[in-house]
């Protein structure tokens, strides 16, 4: 039972007048797993999670959270989800503490349980010292952290974060990402939408790439890279016989291309990280001396470009 997915959704569809915003999206998120929905603005990420959270009427598809069907038991589904919207949805004229108490009560918490969870959550997001201050007096990053805290209070089985770092300074972004990373260790399933490739790579165990309302691919980063046939690039800076070095490297199994470029040799290979020891060993017999090695692995940006023909930020 513990291995059953926390979130299971299938064939989600939503049309806004003539525009098909979400077209047959479906995926699963396991306990403790962080699943990223990666796509450019307008790809359908927010629409998808709005349907999962019961905020938007579906034109089709099914959603099950923690074993409960959104159609049959929306209250149970909503109680199992912690929703963190893209915008800071808090009362600016209340303090951080009062906001958390408010949202805790909205999730049915009360009394000592509420007080303990508010205190613990403030600690997690590092706002204990400022809990009594008005939210309007918080920095943008602090507001974002409190925004996340309000969704975590009731210890949801599934935390849904809709672009939580949009418009946040680097320091606050790091703090937010660290908070999200910690959630997986607590067994909470996380559904994270972003158009920042770096965030998806850092946080997500699996990524679903969404474009124009369709889930075009999903898997681990490595699976996605492999699926589109993208290869690693290895740049060897060297002195001596560079042509000899290129010839030796080209004979190593897994190296597809080798060429002399400037003061070094550039290789194209599959699973370059695994090849590096053998490459360096071969280089010792080439008549050249390798002075530095740089491994450039294909990223999700490259995968997205390969799959959709456009960049993530287009």
């Amino acid at each position: 039972m513990d291995n059953d997915p926390v979130l299971w959704c299938k064939d989600l569809r939503k049309r806004f007048k003539e525009r098909l915003a979400v077209d047959g999206v479906g995926f699963e998120v396991a306990p403790g797993e962080t699943y990223g929905l990666l796509g450019p603005n307008g790809a359908g990420k927010t629409t998808t999670i709005s349907m999962i959270c019961g905020l938007l009427r579906r034109d089709g598809g099914e959603v099950t959270v923690a074993g409960a069907s959104l159609d049959r038991d929306p209250g149970q589904v909503k109680a199992a989800i912690g929703y963190v919207p893209q915008d800071v949805a808090l009362y600016p004229d209340l303090s951080g503490l009062e906001n958390l108490r408010f949202w805790g009560r909205m999730y049915g918490l009360a009394g000592r349980d509420l007080a303990e969870r508010v205190e613990a959550t403030l600690e997690v997001v590092g706002l204990t010292e400022r809990a009594g201050d008005r939210v309007a007096d918080y920095s943008g990053g602090m507001q974002r952290r409190l925004n996340i805290a309000a969704g975590m209070l009731h210890r949801p089985r599934l935390l849904v974060l809709d672009e939580p770092t949009a418009g946040v300074d680097p320091q606050s972004r790091n703090a937010i990402l660290a908070n999200v990373e910690a959630l997986g260790g607590e067994g909470i399933a996380v559904l994270y939408t972003t158009h920042y490739m770096e965030e998806a790579e850092r946080l997500c165990d699996r990524v679903g790439i969404i474009d124009q309302g369709r889930l075009v691919a999903e898997g681990t980063r490595r699976e996605l890279v492999a699926r589109v046939g993208e290869r690693d690039r290895i740049e060897l800076a060297a002195t001596g016989d560079l042509a000899g070095l290129a010839a030796v490297a080209a004979r190593v199994d897994g190296v597809d291309e080798a060429s002399v470029v400037g003061g070094g040799v550039h290789l194209v290979a599959r699973d370059g990280r695994r090849l590096l020891p053998r490459l360096l060993e071969a280089a010792e017999h080439s008549g050249a001396e390798v002075t530095s090695v740089e491994l450039v692995e294909p990223d999700l940006e490259a995968v997205f470009l390969h799959l959709t023909g456009k960049a993530l930020r287009d």
Binding site: C53, G54, L55, G75, Q76, K78, A79, I81, Y83, P85, D87, V88, A89, L90, Y91, P92, W103, M106, Y107, G108, A150
Partner: peptide, 14 residues
Amino acid sequence: RLGVIRRMLATPTT
């Protein structure tokens, strides 16, 4: 405007 009501709708509240 702040999305507070939308967020309320995501809680187990009718």
